[in-house]
Protein backbone atom coordinates (compact mmCIF):
# COMPACT_ATOMS: atom_id res chain seq x y z
CA UNK A 1 0.00 0.00 0.00
CA UNK A 2 1.29 3.45 -0.85
CA UNK A 3 -0.59 5.36 1.86
CA UNK A 4 1.17 6.37 5.06
CA UNK A 5 0.72 3.81 7.85
CA UNK A 6 -0.60 4.61 11.32
CA UNK A 7 0.60 3.02 14.57
CA UNK A 8 -1.27 3.53 17.83
CA UNK A 9 0.69 3.03 21.07
CA UNK A 10 -1.17 3.24 24.37
CA UNK A 11 -0.35 2.04 27.88
CA UNK A 12 -3.70 0.26 27.72
CA UNK A 13 -4.44 -2.38 25.07
CA UNK A 14 -8.11 -1.43 25.40
CA UNK A 15 -7.42 2.20 24.56
CA UNK A 16 -5.14 1.21 21.66
CA UNK A 17 -7.61 -1.25 20.20
CA UNK A 18 -10.56 1.11 20.69
CA UNK A 19 -8.67 3.91 18.98
CA UNK A 20 -7.86 1.56 16.10
CA UNK A 21 -11.55 0.67 15.84
CA UNK A 22 -12.41 4.34 15.47
CA UNK A 23 -9.75 4.78 12.81
CA UNK A 24 -11.02 1.76 10.88
CA UNK A 25 -14.56 3.13 10.97
CA UNK A 26 -13.30 6.40 9.48
CA UNK A 27 -10.94 5.13 6.81
CA UNK A 28 -11.73 1.46 6.29
CA UNK A 29 -8.80 -0.47 4.90
CA UNK A 30 -7.30 2.45 3.00
CA UNK A 31 -4.51 2.91 5.52
CA UNK A 32 -2.07 0.34 6.98
CA UNK A 33 -2.90 0.32 10.67
CA UNK A 34 -1.50 -1.40 13.75
CA UNK A 35 -1.80 -0.90 17.47
CA UNK A 36 -0.12 -2.12 20.62
CA UNK A 37 -0.70 -1.57 24.30
CA UNK A 38 0.31 -3.06 27.61
CA UNK A 39 3.72 -3.92 28.99
CA UNK A 40 3.84 -7.43 27.56
CA UNK A 41 3.33 -8.93 31.02
CA UNK A 42 -0.37 -8.33 31.41
CA UNK A 43 -0.05 -4.88 32.96
CA UNK A 44 -0.43 -1.33 31.74
CA UNK A 45 2.59 0.01 29.92
CA UNK A 46 4.34 -0.06 26.58
CA UNK A 47 6.87 -2.44 25.10
CA UNK A 48 9.60 -1.52 22.64
CA UNK A 49 9.39 -4.98 21.11
CA UNK A 50 5.63 -4.68 20.58
CA UNK A 51 6.03 -1.20 19.10
CA UNK A 52 8.67 -2.48 16.65
CA UNK A 53 6.24 -5.24 15.68
CA UNK A 54 3.40 -2.77 15.14
CA UNK A 55 5.63 -0.59 12.96
CA UNK A 56 6.47 -3.64 10.83
CA UNK A 57 2.80 -4.49 10.54
CA UNK A 58 1.75 -0.99 9.47
CA UNK A 59 4.87 -0.43 7.35
CA UNK A 60 4.48 1.58 4.19
CA UNK A 61 7.17 2.92 1.89
CA UNK A 62 5.36 6.27 2.29
CA UNK A 63 6.22 6.13 6.00
CA UNK A 64 4.57 5.54 9.35
CA UNK A 65 3.07 8.02 11.82
CA UNK A 66 2.94 6.89 15.46
CA UNK A 67 0.35 8.22 17.89
CA UNK A 68 1.09 7.81 21.61
CA UNK A 69 -0.58 8.51 24.94
CA UNK A 70 1.56 9.19 28.04
CA UNK A 71 5.30 9.94 28.21
CA UNK A 72 6.55 6.36 28.45
CA UNK A 73 4.77 5.52 25.22
CA UNK A 74 6.63 8.36 23.53
CA UNK A 75 10.01 7.37 25.00
CA UNK A 76 9.51 3.72 24.08
CA UNK A 77 8.34 4.64 20.58
CA UNK A 78 11.42 6.81 20.00
CA UNK A 79 13.58 3.93 21.25
CA UNK A 80 11.80 1.53 18.86
CA UNK A 81 12.42 3.87 15.92
CA UNK A 82 16.09 4.11 16.83
CA UNK A 83 16.41 0.33 17.12
CA UNK A 84 14.73 -0.19 13.75
CA UNK A 85 17.51 2.00 12.44
CA UNK A 86 18.30 3.53 9.08
CA UNK A 87 17.05 3.81 6.44
CA UNK A 88 13.52 3.03 7.68
CA UNK A 89 13.85 5.24 10.77
CA UNK A 90 13.85 8.31 8.52
CA UNK A 91 10.30 7.45 7.46
CA UNK A 92 8.84 7.05 10.97
CA UNK A 93 7.58 9.97 13.04
CA UNK A 94 6.29 9.96 16.61
CA UNK A 95 3.51 12.57 16.59
CA UNK A 96 2.90 15.13 19.28
CA UNK A 97 -0.89 14.91 19.34
CA UNK A 98 -3.75 13.52 21.43
CA UNK A 99 -3.88 9.80 20.72
CA UNK A 100 -7.51 9.34 19.66
CA UNK A 101 -8.05 12.59 17.77
CA UNK A 102 -4.54 12.42 16.36
CA UNK A 103 -4.95 8.88 15.07
CA UNK A 104 -8.30 9.58 13.44
CA UNK A 105 -7.16 12.85 11.85
CA UNK A 106 -3.81 11.44 10.73
CA UNK A 107 -5.45 8.35 9.23
CA UNK A 108 -8.05 10.44 7.43
CA UNK A 109 -5.28 12.58 5.93
CA UNK A 110 -3.28 9.47 5.05
CA UNK A 111 -6.25 7.82 3.35
CA UNK A 112 -6.25 10.61 0.76
CA UNK A 113 -2.69 9.81 -0.24
CA UNK A 114 -1.03 12.61 1.73
CA UNK A 115 2.71 12.51 2.40
CA UNK A 116 4.12 11.58 5.83
CA UNK A 117 4.94 15.26 6.38
CA UNK A 118 1.33 16.27 5.69
CA UNK A 119 -0.06 13.47 7.87
CA UNK A 120 2.16 14.47 10.78
CA UNK A 121 1.32 18.17 10.32
CA UNK A 122 -2.40 17.34 10.49
CA UNK A 123 -1.90 15.50 13.77
CA UNK A 124 0.28 18.26 15.19
CA UNK A 125 -2.40 20.88 14.48
CA UNK A 126 -4.38 19.26 17.31
CA UNK A 127 -1.70 20.09 19.87
CA UNK A 128 -1.33 23.53 21.45
CA UNK A 129 2.27 24.52 20.70
Amino acid sequence: MSNVGIVIVSHSPLVAEGTADMVRQMVGDEVPLAWCGGNGHGGLGTSVEAIMGAIDKAWSEAGVAILVDLGGAETNSEMAVEMIGEPRSHKIVVCNAPIVEGAVMAATEASGGASLKEVVATAHELSPS
Binding site: T46, V48, E49, G71, T75, N76, E78, M79, M83
Partner: peptide, 18 residues
Amino acid sequence: GTKLVMTVGGASGPLFGT
Protein backbone atom coordinates in the same frame (compact mmCIF):
# COMPACT_ATOMS: atom_id res chain seq x y z
CA GLY B 1 21.32 -2.12 27.34
CA THR B 2 19.40 -3.80 24.55
CA LYS B 3 18.14 -6.48 26.95
CA LEU B 4 16.97 -3.81 29.40
CA VAL B 5 15.15 -1.92 26.64
CA MET B 6 13.31 -5.09 25.68
CA THR B 7 12.46 -6.34 29.16
CA VAL B 8 12.13 -3.51 31.68
CA GLY B 9 9.12 -1.84 30.11
CA GLY B 10 7.87 1.56 31.14
CA ALA B 11 9.99 4.60 30.47
CA SER B 12 12.79 3.12 32.60
CA GLY B 13 13.56 0.52 29.92
CA PRO B 14 14.63 3.00 27.24
CA LEU B 15 16.29 5.29 29.79
CA PHE B 16 18.45 2.69 31.55
CA GLY B 17 18.88 0.85 28.24
CA THR B 18 20.17 4.03 26.62
